[in-house]
Structures are given as structure tokens and as C-alpha cells.
Design a protein around this nucleic acid. Sequence first.
DNA 1: CTGAAAGCGCTTACAG
DNA 2: CTGAAAGCGCTTACAG
Lengths: 345, 345
Amino acid sequence: MKKKVTLKQIAKELDVSISTVSKSLRNSLEIGEETRLKVQAFAKFYHYKPNNIALSLKNRKTKTIGIVIPEIVHHFFSTVINGIEHIANENGYNVIICLSDDSFDKEVLNMEILANGSIDGFIMSLSKETQQKGDFHHINEVINQGMPVVMFDRVTNDILCDKVIINDELAAYEAVQRLIDKGRKKIALVTTVDYVSVGKFRTDGYTKALWDNGLPFDENLIIKIENVENCEITIAQLLEEKAFDAVFAVNELFAVTIIKMANKRGIKVPEDLAVIAFTDGIISKYSTPTITTVSQNGIEMGSVAAKILIERLETEEEESEGEETEVVYKTVVIETHLIERESTL
Amino acid sequence: MKKKVTLKQIAKELDVSISTVSKSLRNSLEIGEETRLKVQAFAKFYHYKPNNIALSLKNRKTKTIGIVIPEIVHHFFSTVINGIEHIANENGYNVIICLSDDSFDKEVLNMEILANGSIDGFIMSLSKETQQKGDFHHINEVINQGMPVVMFDRVTNDILCDKVIINDELAAYEAVQRLIDKGRKKIALVTTVDYVSVGKFRTDGYTKALWDNGLPFDENLIIKIENVENCEITIAQLLEEKAFDAVFAVNELFAVTIIKMANKRGIKVPEDLAVIAFTDGIISKYSTPTITTVSQNGIEMGSVAAKILIERLETEEEESEGEETEVVYKTVVIETHLIERESTL
DNA sequence: CTGAAAGCGCTTACAG
DNA sequence: CTGAAAGCGCTTACAG
């Protein structure tokens, strides 16, 4: 049970000053070779490692990135974290993760805590509740303090900062277009409630595709689901009452549920009903039939977000803090593409 | 762009000493009411929040937990993190997550970095490579420094510390017993290579169940898969050559692959082939047919691990550091149970 | 009732 | 070549 050794202890043992120890370990030429080597040998022997917290305080930077996301048990967010984590590590950063559980209050609280010195910058995706409320003061506060924020996926125009997104509308448009190209005429949409920004954009893409192809827009073919748990009833209604030959679902959970329920009713996928889902997760690959999806490259989104943030953190220090240069934020749009599987063959 | 305000600045503005400001904000009765209120009002107005890093340095504790796991894009690990995160937050702790990518070197590196003051204790699950090498010096080092470690799921007997596990052998035994109870006689096992501890225990349970029921042990019915990517060939061989009426898979990815491949060959699940998988993940719920699984309550494992760690951290401070009381570690076994679905009906 | 001092563990500009 | 001092932002035992 030997506690970690400190500079002070080494200095005492070796009967030199703390400064000398510090400089020796940083290989400063200021220190005579003999002392330097002696200190280094001693430090090595005792496994000396500088205390990160002390360094953080001294340097005014923590070399850690704060991630605030709605959920972690969600394939898409896991992949994003994966992407962030790898780029972060490569650059000597650690990541500290907080979950908002899609709650506004938790999001605010988490960000306040992390902003008090624990991290150098944020990568975040808005909670549902935050999007619904449209209250982003906590994010602005953080930014005003001079802490960079990169938002991904669920972003908002009300905040000026770097963003990494996909073109949800376009991706949805292309998915629906694909269904149309395959001869489908009556395409249903299974989406979320409107305040989730990405849900809304995807709905827009759907509508636009129908319009551009001169297909009638039938409100009855659109269902908006609040939470996944009780989506079955709504979907059952759709299947019972409405005649349609294709469905575009804004996530794979909706899609797989539809497929399973359709199968039970003797509706064959893809013959009677073609299905395309948003989010290329794990379910689509293993469902029967496998599901055609819009890939939403989470790893890529995470990597890009991390790169942007780190870039900002590292250039920030070079700029003299005096001149308030106008910051130019960028929005990177990650490419999506359709992964064709059995549900649309 | 108003940077965060510090005690020093407040002191200067109000023309009092830093000590006075600090005490006022902590509501110390030492300070006269007038000054106290004045300071508090001022601090509130400027949104003063103490700097976490400074507090960490001062208190010699960071109130953050380090999590080191093999992977994050993996439903089981996500749920564990979820469990940890919630308990941590409830108790005022943050979590910092590092991925080992199943690499020994990354695991060692991550732990070394975190151990240098960034966290108060570890929750971890061993990487495959670490288990294979059997080299745990990095974990012992951390423990010797006086930093508590709680291991979960992939643990080792070679390290003395708190552990949260399931009884892999028993759970596997019960799963196989269930298959036998349903009249299955020739049960195949699809497992991982032996050095993954949980894989080994599950294999042991399988063997024992056969033995106890007087069923012949047929080595040809056991396949060990190194990595998921190329499991199809091995599984194909099994399906082609061997006659069997049930299969126990040590994870749901293996199980769903088998089901899909069996279907293609006209083998009906569950009629011709009953399937039970370990790990109750997302795939099992949405596969067709849905898969009977051994639930492995990740949230619960995470919660318990976090509670144990926090308990240790909080009692630690009470004990005077002088007396080296013998530490008694505990191993908590989380209950598992079978979730019956369509693959064994 | 208020403040100067020491200290958490480190770095670095400045003296000597 | 070596070390005392100041400082990162905070707390607290001790003087006054």
C-alpha cells in the first residue's frame, strides 16, 4: 500500500529542491547531468508519474472532453462515443460521459458540473426535452465562458457552434425515392413526434419526395409515435385500416416492429410491403428479413466531432486571449447512403 | 466571453480577503452576516461555481469513477455503463470511460493514465488479451497504490478485489437443462475460445448438464469461435455435417446467425432446432423467431459495482490511514434467469 | 469578525 | 548549476 510518490517526497529523499526534481524529470538542460540522471533513476524506480489534477490546475486545461448524450443504450450513440473516444485517445484526451436520459434538467445539471473546470470542451446531442422546450441557455452559458461546444445529430439553429450532422431531409428523400423507383405508390411514414428535430427533417424529406414524384400525400399514412413501448397499437391500426405497399420508418425499432406485425398478418415483406429504416443499427442486420437502411455513420460523426473540438482546443491556446477574433463555426455534413438488404429486394 | 469568475476576483471586487469569500460561500458562521450576504449575492450574480479541479487537488479526491471496458458498442456493456452512471450521479460522482478495445496494452495505458490522480477508483472488465496473457500487474499496481477496483463480468481469481459477476456455469447449466427438459437429446454448443473466462465457465456448465443427465458428450457438437466476423463458415460446417436438435450459444450474435443459417437450409426453429443464447440483448427480442436467452442484467451489475465502489470510497476516508486493517473483499453474484421466447417454444 | 499563511502537486520565471 | 518564490483555485487551522 505505497501511495503515489510526489515531487516533494523525491526532493526530500534526494536532498534537492522540488524545482530541481521537476526540471530533471522534464529533462531540462538547466540541471547538471549527474543530478538529472540521479533524479530520473530514482523517479523511475518509484514509478513516479505526475499528478494529472495538479497539472490540470497549473495548465488550466484538463485534456478531457465532456460528452453529454441522451442515452447510451442505443447503438447509434455507442458508435458515436466509440468514434470520439478513439480520436480523443490518439490526441491524449480522455472522455467523461454524462447521460441526460432525455431530460432537460439532467442535461443542464450535467453540463454545469462538467463546465466547472472538469473538462476543456463539450461534444453533445440534445435531449428530447430540451428540443421540446427550446431552452438552450445552458449551452450558451458554457460557450460564453469560452468553452467550445460541438453538437452532433440532434442540433439546433438557435445555438452558434460547430456541428456535425447528416442531411436528414435529403437522406429521407432518397430513401423514399428509392421506394418509389421500385414501383411503390402508397408509402406510409412511421416517425416520431415533431419536436425531435431529426424526426421532423425526415418527415420533410418524405413529404418532398412524394410531392416531387406527383404522388398524393395521405395524412392517414403517417403515424407519429411518442415512445417505442406502446408503438404496437398505433402500428396495428395502420396495418389494419390502411392500404399501402411500402413504409419508411425513422428508426429501425419502428421498422422491425412493423415487419414482425405484418408477418403475423400474412403481409409479406418485401413482396407486399417494402421497408426502409433510418439508422443502420444492429437490429437491421439480424432481422428477418434483413432491413434496408439509411446508414448514419456514428463512428464517423464521433470522429469528426472530436477532431473539430480538439482542433479548436489546440489552436485556442495559440491565439493571444486579448484579441477577440470573430469565431467562424462550421457545420460538417456526414454522408449517408442506403444499405440495401432484403426488405426492399 | 466572460471567463469563469474565481474567489480571487470576487475578493478583489469586494475588497475582502479570499478566505472571507470562501468562508462566506460555504456559509461559515465565522463571517459576519452582512459580509456573508454581500459576498453570496455577488457570487450568485456572477454565477460563481467552485473549480472542480482545485477542489480535487485540495481534497485529494476527484469524485469521479474510472470505467475501463473492452468495448462500448455492445449492448451488455452499454447497459452496465448505464447502471454505473446512474448510481454515480445520484452520489455526486462522474464517470470517465476508457475503452481497451480488448487490447492488453490499451488497458494498461488507460489505467495508468487514469490512476495518476484523475479518478478515485476503477470499475472494470478485463480485455480478452489480458485474460489470454494472464498478466494483471497493472491492476495490482493500482490496488497497491490504495485505489479501489471493482471488477465485473470478465474477472480473474488472480486479483483480490471486489467483484460483481453472474454464475456463468450455473446459468449455462440451467439453460442446457431446460433444453433437455424439453426433450432435446443432441445439444450443440457454440462458444468462444477458452481464454475468455466467461466462455469457459459457460462451456463447463454445458458439459456438466449433459453429464448429470446421462447424455453423451460429443466433442463434434462443440464449436469454438474466435471472432464473430468469420463464424459463418464454422457454423455452416456444424449445420451440414452434424445432426442435433438444440443449440446453446454463449452469445446472441452466434445464436441469431445459427437461426438464420438454419432457416436457409430448411431447418425449422424451434421445431427442428431449439435455441437458447446467453446475454439478453436487443437482437434476441427482434430476431425471427425471438430467442430464448439467459438474462444478464447489465444495469443491475453496473449499479451494484458502483455501489460497492462508492461505499469503499466513502468509508475509506473515515478510517484513519494509519491502521492497515485487513481488507475484506466481496464478490456479488447477480441472479440470472431464463427469458423464454419463441426459439424454444 | 477578518485575514495571512500554509498546503494540495505541479511548473517556471527569476535570483544567485 | 540549483533553489526560493509565485502561482493555478481552493480550504482551513491559526492569529489577531
